[in-house]
């Protein structure tokens, strides 16, 4: 089990935003879908720091990312 960020796609799609993507410390991890205009997480690269949650919830008050427990292989 490990802790990763997960974007609530339908919520995120309401905003034309990619702020969290610009603050993730990890490369090629928190990505942005060009046509759907939503952020998405490459789970196997996410280190679970929750900086993206701080950006989306604390700074922007949008609450579109949550931290979830994931089992290896999921």
């Amino acid at each position: 089990m490990y802790y990763v960020a997960d974007v609530k796609e339908t919520d995120c799609a309401k905003y034309n935003c990619k702020q969290c993507v610009l603050f993730c410390p990890e490369p090629n991890t928190l990505m942005y879908h060009d046509s759907k205009h939503v952020a998405w997480v490459n789970y196997s690269r996410c280190k679970g720091c929750a900086i993206c949650v701080y950006v989306c919830s604390d700074l922007l008050k949008r609450n579109c990312i949550e931290m979830v427990m994931m089992t290896a292989g999921e």
Partner: peptide, 14 residues
């Protein structure tokens, strides 16, 4: 987040 970055996965802390 919309292109392949030059840095790869690395072992720096979360």
């Amino acid at each position: 987040g919309q292109f392949k970055e030059l840095v790869e996965e690395h072992p720096m802390c979360a």
